[in-house]
């Protein structure tokens, strides 16, 4: 049988990690969404230099491993005098990385709204930003919700990267418990369960939204 005493004896440790994983995910969720929206707008705005910056951001960030970004913020930045704790460095890296995927999803969503609508809105006197905010974005949101939801599930899973830079998350504390108790199998099973407690409801939610939005089209 699986040894539940591992879970009970180290409950506080697990919980501390679980809490920090939730925090990192929530902050990452907000952070990546905000950056993602900004980058998406840059990519489609009618200003060439902004397009370039947006494109470079998306293409570069999503083609390199998250681990490099996390190490960069943790041990790279101190070289120029900025020292961030593992949790902060990891959460920033998560936000920046996930944002590149969210930006792509948003761009695809916005571009799926017929161009004529933007032109019509502009000719009726709205500024570009107003047209974007009032006409285009509300429509695009529906299309982009499922892919963004999937990115958030990825974000929760990817938050385990914090374990490699002493980010005090679930992965980190699971590792500590296992190296102090000399038990691996049971310890990791419990770590997995904690992650599934977060990701399975998210998957269910995204699946549900996907179905509903698909029907409404």
């Amino acid at each position: 049988m699986i040894d539940f005493s591992i879970l009970i004896d180290n409950w506080d440790t697990y919980l501390e990690g679980f809490k920090n994983t939730i925090f990192a995910s929530l902050i990452g969720l907000v952070g990546s969404f905000v950056i993602g929206v900004i980058v998406a707008v840059m990519r489609i705005a009618p200003i060439k230099p902004l397009n370039w910056i947006g494109t470079v951001y998306v293409e570069f960030i999503r083609n390199i491993p998250l681990l490099i970004i996390a190490f960069f913020f943790y041990v790279g930045l101190p070289a120029i005098g900025v020292t961030l704790p593992g949790f902060v460095a990891g959460t920033i890296a998560l936000s920046i990385y996930t944002a590149s995927f969210i930006a792509e999803a948003i761009r695809a969503g916005i571009q799926s709204v017929p161009k004529g609508q933007m032109e019509a809105a502009r000719s009726s006197g709205l500024t570009y930003l107003q047209a974007m905010r009032l006409i285009i974005l509300p429509q695009a949101i529906k299309i982009v919700i499922p892919p963004i939801g999937n990115q958030f599930i990825n974000l929760v899973k990817n938050s385990s990267i914090l374990g490699m830079i002493a980010g005090l998350d679930l992965m980190y504390f699971g590792d500590i418990v296992s190296s102090h108790t000399f038990v691996t199998f049971d310890v990791y099973i419990f770590v997995a369960l904690f992650y599934l407690v977060l990701t399975i409801p998210l998957s269910l939610g995204v699946g549900y939204l996907e179905k509903r939005l698909a029907r409404s089209h």
Partner: peptide, 25 residues
Amino acid sequence: MFKSKSSKLALILFLAMSMLLAACG
């Protein structure tokens, strides 16, 4: 429906499987 049901099942089965694996381990 299928997806949501199977996800629920996933959790239950995962628990069962982990116990089984741990037991034979």
